Simulated assay, not measured.
Amino acid sequence: MRVMVMVKATKDSEAGIMPTVERLEAMGEFNEELIRAGVMLAGDGLKASSNGKRVAFDGANRTVIDGPFAETAELVAGFWIWQVKDMAEAVEWVKRCPNPMPGPSEIEIRPLYEAADFA
C-alpha cells in the first residue's frame, strides 16, 4: 500500500525558520534508511504558505487566494510517499522519525487510493 506521510506545519516553519544542521542531518539519515529499505518513493519539504496560493472552486467560478493561510495546524510543511505493507508498518516508520520540528510536532499518515479501490 502507498501512503502519504505529512509533516504538519508549525509557527516556526510558517515563519520560514530553517531547521538546524543537526535536524537536517538526522532527517537525512532517516531518509537514507527509508530508501535502503525500499519504502520511500518520494519526499520533500514545502516552503511556508506565504509562498503559496489556493484556488477556490464554486461551480464555474475560480477564486485565487494568496497565502499565508491562517490555521497552521491544518498546513503541511513536508511530505513523503511511502510503499509499505500496511498502516502498522507506516506507523512504525513514523515512530522512528526524528522530531521534524523544534518543540511539539505532528505527522499524519494517509493511504493513497489504488486502482483496485475503483474496481
Rank of each mutant, 00 (worst) to 15 (best):
S50Q: 14
P19T: 04
L75Q: 12
K85I: 13
L112N: 08
A9E: 06
I109M: 09
P104D: 15
S13G: 02
A116R: 10
A26T: 11
A42I: 01
G59V: 09
L24F: 09
V84D: 07
A70P: 08
P102N: 12
A48H: 03
V64A: 05
G16K: 10
M1A: 13
D44K: 03
I109L: 10
D86I: 06
N61D: 13
M27C: 03
P111T: 11
I65A: 04
V64Q: 01
E33V: 02
A116P: 00
S50T: 07
M27K: 01
L46M: 15
E108N: 09
M87W: 00
A70V: 15
F69D: 07
E114D: 09
K95G: 05
D86W: 01
A119P: 00
R23M: 13
M18G: 00
A26C: 12
V55C: 07
W82S: 07
A116M: 05
R54E: 04
S50C: 11
T63D: 06
E32F: 01
A56V: 15
Y113F: 15
V21E: 15
A26E: 15
D117N: 10
E25K: 14
V55Y: 05
P104R: 12
A42V: 05
G67S: 07
G45R: 02
E14M: 03
M40F: 06
F79H: 14
M18W: 04
R36N: 15
L34H: 03
E89T: 01
V94C: 12
T63S: 13
K8H: 06
G67W: 00
G103P: 07
R23L: 15
G16R: 04
V21A: 15
E74I: 01
I17Y: 03
G16I: 12
G52P: 08
S49T: 08
F57W: 12
M1H: 09
F118Y: 12
K11V: 11
A48D: 05
A60Q: 11
D12N: 10
L75K: 05
A56L: 15
W82C: 00
E33Q: 12
